[in-house]
Write a protein that binds this DNA or RNA. Structure first.
Lengths: 144, 144
DNA sequence: GGTGAAAGCTAGCCGGC
DNA sequence: GCCGGCTAGCTTTCACC
C-alpha cells in the first residue's frame, strides 16, 4: 500500500466507474500497471466492490429516522429473536448492538412520516422483547 | 420508472461496475436500449454516481463510534461555528442536526480506540460551544 | 425496443529497468 | 519486482430502422 494505491482508492471511491485508462492518467501511471494494482486491491479485499448511489426519494426511502431501542429483557433467546426480526426488515438500513444504553441503534429509511408511523407501530413496537423505543428526527443532514 | 428501471437500479446498486451488455442480459434487454435507460436514470438524478466500497480497516477507519452532542448554547453564531468546524473534520463521517435531544448525532471513523481518544479530546471537546458529548460504542454491527 | 459499425477499453504477454 | 508498450478481443456508444 503505497501512495499510488491510496490515490487509486481515492479516485475509485469518488467515481467507481472510472475507466482504467482515465484512472491511470489521473494517478500518473500507464494502464497496464494501473490495472494490476486495481486487481490486487480487489483480490486483497481492500476494494470490496462497487455500488451505484441511488437517490433515496426515487425508491421510496427519502425519509430517514434514527431510532434507539432498549429491550425489556436481556434473556438470550429474546435478544436473538429481536435481532433476527429487526435485521430481516427492509426498512432497517442499519442496526448496531451497543455497549450500555441504548441497547440498539437503528436507522430506518421509509418514504415519509406516514409510512414511518405505520412501520414503527406495526413492525417494531409489536416485537415481544421491546422495552423503550425513541425516534430521533433529523432537521438537517450536515454531512453524510 | 417501470419495472425495467427498477431492475436496473437493483443490479447497479449491487454491482456498480456491471458492463452494459451484462446488465442488459440480466434485465432482458439488448445493450442499446439498456444504455439509454441507464443514461436517463443518471441524467434525471435517480442514479447519483458510482462508488468503490473500501475496507475501512485498510484506510485507518476501522473503528466507528456513534456520538451524541449537546451544545451549551443555542446562539446562532456559536451554532454555525460548531457546525462548520465539525463538518470540516475528516473523521466525522456523518453529522445530523436533530429536533430535540441530543442536538447533534455524529458518526466518527478512526483507526482505533487510541485515535478516538485523541480525536475526541483534541478536536471535539476543544470546540467552544460544546456542552455534553456522549460516545456510544458498537458491540456488533448487525446490519449496515 | 432493436441493429450495426466506429471508437475506445480491457487484459494478457513480453521486454526493460 | 514493478513499469511500459503492444495487440487481440470485447464493450461502449451512436445514428438509423
Amino acid at each position: 500500500m503505497d501512495a499510488l494505491d491510496r490515490a487509486i482508492i481515492a479516485e475509485l471511491a469518488e467515481d467507481g466507474r472510472l475507466s482504467n485508462v482515465e484512472l491511470a492518467a489521473r494517478i500518473g501511471l500507464t494502464p497496464g500497471p494501473c490495472l494490476r494494482r486495481v486487481q490486487r486491491l480487489e483480490s486483497e479485499g481492500v476494494i470490496r466492490g462497487y455500488r451505484a448511489i441511488v437517490d433515496p426519494d426515487a425508491v421510496g426511502r427519502g425519509f430517514e429516522v434514527i431510532v434507539h431501542v432498549d429491550l425489556s429483557t436481556q434473556e438470550a433467546a429474546a435478544v436473538a429473536g429481536f435481532e433476527a426480526a429487526v435485521v430481516a426488515l427492509d426498512e432497517v438500513v442499519e442496526c448496531q448492538r451497543l455497549f450500555g444504553r441504548p441497547d440498539y441503534f437503528l436507522r430506518i429509511a421509509v418514504a415519509d412520516l406516514g409510512s414511518y408511523e405505520a412501520f414503527l407501530t406495526q413492525k417494531i413496537m409489536s416485537l415481544s422483547a421491546i422495552g423503550r423505543v425513541t425516534s430521533h428526527f433529523s432537521m438537517k443532514a450536515l454531512k453524510g
